[in-house]
Nucleic acid binder design. Sequence first.
DNA 1: TTGAAAGCGCTAACAA
DNA 2: TTGTTAGCGCTTTCAA
Lengths: 333, 333
Amino acid sequence: MKKITIYDVAREAGVSLATVSRVINGSSVVREKTKQKVLKVIEDLDFKPNQIARGLATSKTTTIAIIFPQSLFAHVKDMIGGIGDAGRHLDYNITIYTTDDIGDDDTVGDVLEKVVKTRADGVILFNNDQIDQEIELVRKYKIPAVVIGACVSDELIGSIYIDAKQVAFQIIDSYLKKGKSDIVFVSPKQNLVRTNDLIAGIKEAYAQHQQTFSDEQIIHTSSHYEKCYPQLLEYFRSHHHEVVFSSYDKEGVAVINAASDNNIKIPDDMEVISMMDTSYSLMSRPTLTSIHLPIYDMGALAVRLLTKILNDEEIETKEVCVNTIIMKRESTK
Amino acid sequence: MKKITIYDVAREAGVSLATVSRVINGSSVVREKTKQKVLKVIEDLDFKPNQIARGLATSKTTTIAIIFPQSLFAHVKDMIGGIGDAGRHLDYNITIYTTDDIGDDDTVGDVLEKVVKTRADGVILFNNDQIDQEIELVRKYKIPAVVIGACVSDELIGSIYIDAKQVAFQIIDSYLKKGKSDIVFVSPKQNLVRTNDLIAGIKEAYAQHQQTFSDEQIIHTSSHYEKCYPQLLEYFRSHHHEVVFSSYDKEGVAVINAASDNNIKIPDDMEVISMMDTSYSLMSRPTLTSIHLPIYDMGALAVRLLTKILNDEEIETKEVCVNTIIMKRESTK
DNA sequence: TTGAAAGCGCTAACAA
DNA sequence: TTGTTAGCGCTTTCAA
């Protein structure tokens, strides 16, 4: 069974190629009657225009690539909903590329090379510890891009981010005002939110109160609960703080569980607050106070912004800052 | 800056198009010296072959589409790791399509139409309540496919699944043997594992013990914790069972929390066992006994099987059954 | 071992 | 409003 092409449609409808091309692309110059005739034949023959051929002819693939390291997947997954929906509505295909941060080969470079070969129209990147390298490559190949989680922009690059520094500042400032300065910050290596920005915000809050936040107050941990929990269980055997601020719910829950298992009462003995507001925070006991990010929207916004860049549409700002809101639950007073 | 093409390489290397094509495709007939010369030019010019053009010429896109409803995302996400890695290693691109089960339009049909237009070589489907329709369309369009979570196969279709009936049978049988027959089954609407198979296994176990499992012992719930937990909280106010079997950890945790909040002691008053073995089961208190599925592998296997179908490779079986293992934790005795 | 040339299926000037 | 035709960048016979 041969695939039917625009030729078949043209022949069957008794018109030229160009006319068929016009109707499938919704050109307005074609006479209504001709259009109906062609449409009928398309329907009868169940003709599906070949995107590949169109891509070759137009140098556009209507494809957006998203690139992320496996370890960031927990964050990316929730965005895929927004990305997928926006892609579907705007008629873009979404191709995913995972960079394997375990292997030692140059996956970032390899992946971007692949993106170039497939001629994706644009790419969505996520903040991670290789983001600078990714941005550099994207610039080199002149691929339009939107990065989620960091604030960058130029001719071909836009971003969707949250003001992490500000968020951290507010949280910490509010505790310092209450006289609580025995605070530790727990963070995994990979995060959607820039850890450094968070730390900068924390430090600024301390500075504001004539105190200093030392690097000893930072606990580096794994984003795998299996590793994170035992580490914290050991930690809380001999430590105890007024407040723990975690940059992701999973670690937040690990803190709650590890502390509870060491008989530290939450929130009475210690308060825990984290970020992302995933379902982990609802499932934990006590439930976890968490800073909500509009994850789904960030994905959808990224696609929208990228398509604007691709189509040279009017753009208000290429650096879109989204708002956060703190979801107060049982782990804080 | 114009994109450089195979023509540029040919000219620069003083050979013909065909020769360049041969070297980038690793043809063995080209003389080593010529090959090196061409390779050098490719390097110098930083030439990246255009996949789109190649796709048009060969009618192959080396692209696999994966299609899933948003509501199944919790399950699919963990597989994306395996799918992404396998895709990268086998040099296939992965394009994702989400079917929006909220909207009332024919998204399944629309999405498959899109897949046809983009000429994906094959597609990976996931068991869900529209799977029959999806399979029908895939057959109609003659697209090679692998479905994850259900056992089906034919000329162009393969599958990766677990024997859900058997799994459920074993669990329930073991409890019935201990004389525990006050069991309820909790299940969300969408699931990667066929709920009906699970129920069939449960019923078979009951039958084996000359008892019957009634439909009143099934609790239908939402896959959203926010909805599931309140429903169960209410339920356990007036109910109490020996065993709760849940088809997904999220609901398993909801059961634990809802029961605990009604002062039902787990596992002493009631045992809870669930499926998937996600990190939810580790984070819950008490920790949740759960049936482990090799999720990552299932994704990778699906890609591998699909590529075998695509390339007419030798295939042992098109219905690949993967093993499960029960991860005993605190919620069962 | 290499090259010439005919597609792959579509778009987009340009003409009519 | 419609048709003709030259590409888009690559693969793949067929000849040499």
